[in-house]
Simulated scan of single mutants.
Amino acid sequence: MQQNKNAIALLLTVMFVIVISVALGYGLKSVKKSAKVIESEKFLYQNSLIVEDVLRILKESPDFKVLRDDNATTELYMFLSSSSYIPLEMGNMQILISFVSARAKFNPNQLYNNSKEIDAFKHYVQEYMVDNFYVDILLDNMKIITQENRYDGYNSAIFDKNPELFREYVASSEHLKKINNYYKVEYNNENINKIDFKNLFYYSKDRNTSIDLNYATPEVWKLLLGVDTLRAEALSSGSGSYSEIGDLGLSDEEKESLKNFKTSFYEPYLYVNIEVMSEVGNSQISFEYDIKKQKGYGFVFKI
Results as ranks from 00 to 15, higher is better:
residue 210 S to A: 07
residue 150 R to G: 01
residue 132 N to L: 06
residue 249 G to W: 02
residue 194 K to S: 08
residue 245 I to N: 05
residue 166 F to P: 00
residue 239 S to A: 15
residue 207 R to V: 11
residue 129 M to L: 12
residue 174 E to H: 09
residue 176 L to D: 10
residue 134 Y to F: 13
residue 256 E to N: 13
residue 148 E to Y: 07
residue 250 L to H: 06
residue 194 K to G: 02
residue 145 I to V: 14
residue 253 E to Y: 14
residue 260 N to S: 12
residue 234 A to Y: 01
residue 197 F to K: 08
residue 157 A to M: 02
residue 161 K to T: 07
residue 265 F to G: 04
residue 250 L to R: 02
residue 167 R to H: 14
residue 248 L to G: 00
residue 188 N to R: 09
residue 167 R to D: 13
residue 160 D to N: 03
residue 227 V to P: 00
residue 143 K to V: 10
residue 152 D to H: 08
residue 268 P to M: 01
residue 207 R to H: 12
residue 269 Y to C: 05
residue 212 D to P: 01
residue 143 K to I: 10
residue 147 Q to M: 10
residue 258 L to V: 12
residue 208 N to R: 06
residue 126 Q to E: 14
residue 188 N to V: 08
residue 164 E to T: 13
residue 243 S to D: 07
residue 173 S to C: 06
residue 220 V to N: 08
residue 258 L to T: 14
residue 186 E to Q: 14
residue 199 N to D: 13
residue 143 K to A: 14
residue 165 L to M: 15
residue 180 N to S: 13
residue 193 N to C: 05
residue 236 S to L: 02
residue 158 I to P: 03
residue 176 L to C: 11
residue 245 I to V: 13
residue 214 N to S: 09
residue 162 N to L: 13
residue 269 Y to T: 10
residue 242 Y to H: 06
residue 183 Y to H: 08
residue 256 E to F: 11
residue 177 K to G: 00
residue 269 Y to R: 03
residue 168 E to L: 09
residue 149 N to F: 03
residue 204 S to Q: 05
residue 263 T to Y: 15
residue 262 K to R: 08
residue 272 V to W: 11
residue 217 T to H: 09
residue 133 F to M: 00
residue 246 G to A: 05
residue 146 T to M: 06
residue 265 F to T: 03
residue 210 S to K: 12
residue 148 E to H: 10
residue 272 V to I: 15
residue 212 D to M: 06
residue 220 V to Q: 05
residue 125 V to K: 01
residue 269 Y to V: 14
residue 201 F to D: 13
residue 270 L to I: 12
residue 205 K to A: 05
residue 231 R to W: 00
residue 258 L to C: 12
residue 125 V to D: 04
residue 149 N to S: 05
residue 201 F to M: 00
residue 235 L to S: 01
residue 176 L to V: 15
residue 242 Y to I: 06
residue 157 A to C: 02
residue 163 P to N: 11
residue 262 K to N: 10
residue 197 F to L: 05
residue 151 Y to K: 03
residue 192 I to L: 09
residue 253 E to K: 15
residue 144 I to C: 00
residue 252 D to F: 10
residue 251 S to D: 08
residue 220 V to I: 07
residue 139 L to Y: 07
residue 267 E to A: 09
residue 193 N to P: 06
residue 268 P to S: 04
residue 255 K to T: 11
residue 185 V to E: 05
residue 175 H to A: 15
residue 223 L to M: 07
residue 218 P to K: 09
residue 205 K to T: 04
residue 232 A to W: 06
residue 185 V to H: 07
residue 240 G to A: 07
residue 227 V to R: 00
